[in-house]
């Protein structure tokens, strides 16, 4: 008797979501099976990577990744253009970290100016990510959403405490939303329900399970993502069928392995290589868990991950 590969079939399917405009628009999601199991399910769209830029110079990034953007990181528009034109980024993720009250405390008006400049500098889709400060994000992202009207951006992150303002702005200006909860499947589902109950189309939500980095509790993120995918595909839970976002840069480039100098730890080898490997491995782990959209910092790590995705597809 010939050997037959046992195959599972899944009741549910991940929503497919298109953002950006024109021929540079990007579509993610759409798969009806677990990650890369193409022998039993169809993967309509490959996971994609966005390159991160910021509204202020990245003074807190390790030198090894900061130097890649020397000469452009002082201007968000030039930085965005560099990512698109020189590094071939398919998506640019603008993090408005400078609006955080503990950082430069830039105003919503400052953010609008940056968003407008970046949007006119590139034609690839743009993601607009707040600083993570609950109250400030509500103000900043509302203004940014209005400034980006018509560009079908992804904006976020909407959290339990500020989703109302951000979702209202996304509805009014036709954007997609990142819904983030803190490593908790039940709260993730609850937030999606609440957002949907405001009249927001659930097919325009991307879920951020709160990703981590290798050595920073990545196994928790992995388990949460696995559970989300089980609910979406096996239990056919419509609230969990959104594409998944992993925003790994901030944690990866905070780990000791990506930042500790060679003079302190000569036995760990090249610092530059370490950082790139750390970001690559973190990203690879996240795509194995079902991530559809990654936000990353080092172009060499992006290259590695894109090659891996190509081999897995």
């Amino acid at each position: 008797m010939p050997f037959a590969i046992p195959k599972d079939s899944y009741a549910g399917k991940i929503n497919s979501l298109t953002f950006g405009s024109g021929d540079k628009a990007v579509t993610i999601g759409g798969e009806n099976g677990l990650p890369f199991l193409s022998f039993e399910s169809s993967i309509s769209n490959r996971p994609v990577v966005a390159l991160e830029i910021q509204d202020v110079a990245p003074s807190d990034w390790p030198d090894t990744v900061r130097k890649v953007y020397d000469g452009v990181s002082g201007s968000p528009a030039q930085w965005a253009k560099f990512c698109q034109d020189s590094l071939g980024a398919k998506i640019v993720a603008l993090r408005l970290v400078g609006t955080h009250p503990d950082r430069e405390n830039r105003s919503a008006d400052d953010a609008v100016k940056t968003v407008t400049e970046v949007l006119s500098a590139v034609d690839v889709p743009v993601m607009i990510i707040g600083s993570g400060h609950i109250e400030k994000d509500a103000q900043v992202l509302k203004a940014a959403a209005e400034a980006a009207k018509g560009k079908e951006c992804i904006i976020g992150k909407a959290q339990e405490e500020n989703y109302r303002t951000i979702v209202t702005a996304a509805i009014a200006n036709n954007h997609k939303i990142i819904a983030m909860s803190q490593l908790d499947v039940n709260l993730a589902k609850q937030l999606n329900i609440l957002i949907t109950q405001m009249g927001f189309n659930r097919e325009n939500i991307i879920m951020d399970p709160m990703s981590s980095a290798l050595g920073y509790g990545i196994e928790y993120t992995y388990s949460v993502m696995e559970r989300i995918r089980q609910a979406a595909l096996v239990q056919n839970d419509p609230m969990m069928q959104t594409p998944l976002l992993c925003d790994i840069g901030p944690n990866v480039w905070k780990t000791k392995e990506s930042a500790a100098p060679e003079s302190e730890l000569p036995e760990w080898g090249s610092l530059e290589e370490r950082g790139i490997v750390w970001e690559s491995v973190t990203a690879a782990t996240m795509i194995m868990a079902g991530c559809n959209l990654l936000v990353m910092r080092h172009p060499k790590a992006v290259e590695t991950v894109n090659r891996l995705i190509g081999e897995l597809m």
Partner: peptide, 12 residues
Amino acid sequence: EKRLYAHSYLEM
């Protein structure tokens, strides 16, 4: 455990 819990699960 056939459906994922959320506070508003009845509404879905």
